[in-house]
Each structure stands twice: as C-alpha cells, then as structure tokens.
Design a protein around this nucleic acid. Structure first.
Lengths: 210, 210
DNA sequence: CTAAAATACACATAAATATGTGAAAATCGT
DNA sequence: ACGATTTTCACATATTTATGTGTATTTTAG
C-alpha cells in the first residue's frame, strides 16, 4: 500500500485527488493539507511514501516545502504538481530533489500510474516537462576550455594565482626565484592575452582552465 | 507517415528495428546504417523526421553522430538508444540536443509509442534515464551566493574589478575620484575577507556574486 | 528623528605588480 | 643531433595596489 500525502491549496482539487487516490487499489491518502506550514511535523506523523506537492500555494509554496522535506528526509518521493510548466519552477524543483513533475491536467489514470512509478524509484514527468528539462540541458554552455597551450609549470603558477598567492608566495611554494615566477606570469599573460593578475584569474574561471 | 532513419551497428538489432517500425502503421524506415560515417549526406538524402541513434558504435559513435546532425539540422528529432544507462553518455547526449533517450530493452510497443511521442515534440525517456537526469539536476551545486551584504556601489566596483579594470579605469567609468574607488575596494575586501584584487575576483566567481 | 551605513574625497607610504632586456641550462620533438 | 620550447634566474624601473588616517555629505533603517 502506497501512502500518499497531499499538499494542495485548492479545496476542490484536494478533495478530488484524495477521492481518486484513496479509491484506487494499492493507494491510500494518509492526509491532505492546504499549505506546507507544518510540513516537517506532518511528515513525522504520517511517514508517507509519496508526497503530491502543489507548486503554487499561499504562504509556504511548493518549492520551499520541498526544501523543508529534503532537509530532514531524502527517502520520501516528492511529485510536484503545477498548472503551468514554467521553466524557473521546474528547474528549482529538480535542483532541490523533486522526484517527478506533473501538470495538473494529467488524466487520472496516468496520475495513478505516475504515483506508482515514482514510488518504485522512477522519475515521471509529463511530456512537456521532459521537453523543457532537455532544453535546459542543451542550454548548458559547452565547456569553453579554449586551448591556450599553457605549459605544466605555467598551469601551476596560474593555479596559485587563482588561489590568491602573491609572487613571493608562489616562489616559495614552487621552490623557484621570484624572478622566475615573473617570467612565467609574463608568458601566461601573453598566452591568455591579458595584462593583469585579476584578468588572468577571471579568464581562468571563465574558460575553466583551472 | 513518420520517416525514421536508423543507426545501429548490430545487424540483428538493426533488422529487427526496421521490421518492427516498417511494419507498423504510420511509420516507415527510410534507411538504416551501421555507422555514422556519412551521416550528413544521408540526412540530406532521406530527410527523416526521427533518427534512432545507437550510442555505442565503432568508428563515429552516437554522440559524435548527434553533434554532426545538430551542426546542420536542428529540426530532426534524435532518439538515443543504449544498452546501459551510463551517466556520462546521457549527459553528453542531452547537452548536445538529443530529444530522448531509451534503453534498448524497451518493449517494442513502448518503442513505437516513444517514436511517435518524439516526432510530435515530446521528450521520451525510459524511467531509469529520467531518474538519472533528475539526479544530475539535484547534484548541481546550490547557488553559493553567500551573503556578503555588498552595497550597490560596491557591487558595481567589484564587477569592474572582475572585468579587469584598474582603479583608474573604474574611477573614470563611475565618474568618481580614484580615492573613492580605493575606499570602496577596501570595504569590499573587508566584507569578502580577502586582501587582494585577484582574491576578490576569484571569490566573486566562486560565490557567484557577480 | 537619529544612529548607522553608504558614498564621496584627500594625502601619504610601503608593498606588489607589470614591463623590458638578457641569458643559461634542461627538455622535447623530429 | 639540432632547433624550438620550457624553465630557470638577474637587474632595473614605472605603475598599480594595499593600507592607514581623516573628513564630509547623503541614504537608510529602526
């Protein structure tokens, strides 16, 4: 028996969901609430397998509710419910450990299937959500990593620059003269086409050289 | 009629897929190949709606094939096929604009459903892949964004430091005296707990202040 | 309203950095 | 084996940065 806990502010929808899920074999709704204000205590009491979490709720919203859940419990599956598939919320929810993301217009039969799915370790998403998720991935900037042909020693020096070391400290760290550090750094600047330490550091971060 | 192009090195599987898809209403396999060596030309000739792309192929593999496709065509849907759901490949494929990702053990009926799904703009994934994708998201480091309480003006100065500006340039840019720039920067260092320009720049990147 | 913070500016000095020029030994690729 | 690159070091100097100490408006928050 899969124990479901529901957070949904709309009374009609909350009742509807409870009816649907409770009336189906293998599912039981242990409780349903109109907001997440006391979610941690409720989680303690009911120990659900799956939480259906509305995104848009007055007071503590679904994302915040999800965060609170994850602070104390990594096991319970959280299925996010939303009317719109808005990009920002999807990303926030997934980052914070949601196990699935459904549109409210999902047909009842599918909804039950998805709940079963998430309970057994799956990651159900409606098609439009999945498309968005993939789009997010494709928008991840490709590793810049422009080839600057830094030599080993130059990379070491740059790494230490990034760590905030002064020339003196670098010389000490690498057992070389400070003038050698200077000549390395001059070469690094040439290769990176910059002319100050902070520019080099910035470029190292931007182009993920380090 | 959905036109499908298949890339799969295993002859049995290639034939099996062709049979299955070609024998189903609404689908037609326009061609099938054992590698992606000439994929660009083949794409020109066949103009498929969906490409079924095996990941593990000798010569040009599926990821590289996907890249070649995306270089010339953003419209065609690409469904990746794999035996194992290995993390690295999933990530690479999604980053490069795959439209879906299936395990080869997907049952034939589901496979057809998924092809139709992707053709109409969906993003089919088998459950285990979706779970992985969500896991990747949850592993994205939470915005560090430690609160340093930088004032507006201080943020501006820091931004310019990150851009590689000297004090003089910053003063010019912000229409203030260079001594004012100094006093801002001193305050910034206090707040970030650093004591050099490059450390501040590094911290700005690490903590995503800018 | 008032204290705290932010913004602006000035002068001084020590330390660090950028730039130039030169050169020798070690390492690498062909 | 030989030329190219890397790594090492030296000396000199102009510029930039870091730090200290002060002061005077202006904004902000309680």
């Amino acid at each position: 028996m899969i124990k479901v806990l529901i957070y949904e502010d709309n009374p009609q929808l909350r009742e509807g969901l409870t009816m649907l899920i409770d009336g189906s074999d293998g599912f039981t709704v242990v409780a349903s609430y109109k907001n997440c204000n006391s979610i941690n205590a409720e989680l303690e009491v009911w120990k659900p397998d799956v939480i259906l979490m509305d995104i848009d709720m007055p007071g503590v919203n679904g994302i915040e509710g999800l965060k609170r859940v994850r602070e104390m419990n990594q096991q319970v599956k959280v299925l996010m419910l939303t009317v719109f598939d808005d990009n920002k919320n999807v990303f926030e929810a997934l980052k914070n450990g949601a196990n699935g993301y459904l549109l409210k217009k999902t047909p009842p039969a599918k909804l039950l299937e998805y709940i079963g799915d998430v309970a057994s370790g799956g990651a159900p998403m409606t098609s439009s959500i999945a498309t968005q998720v993939l789009k997010m991935f494709s928008e991840i900037p490709q590793q810049a990593n422009n080839e600057y042909n830094l030599s080993e020693r130059e990379k070491q020096v740059l790494q230490l620059l990034v760590n905030g070391y002064s020339y003196k400290m670098i010389a000490n760290d690498m057992f070389i003269a400070i003038d050698t550090v200077r000549s390395h750094i001059k070469k690094i600047y040439e290769k990176l086409q910059v002319n100050s330490k902070s520019e080099a550091v910035a470029k190292a971060f931007k182009d993920k050289i380090i």
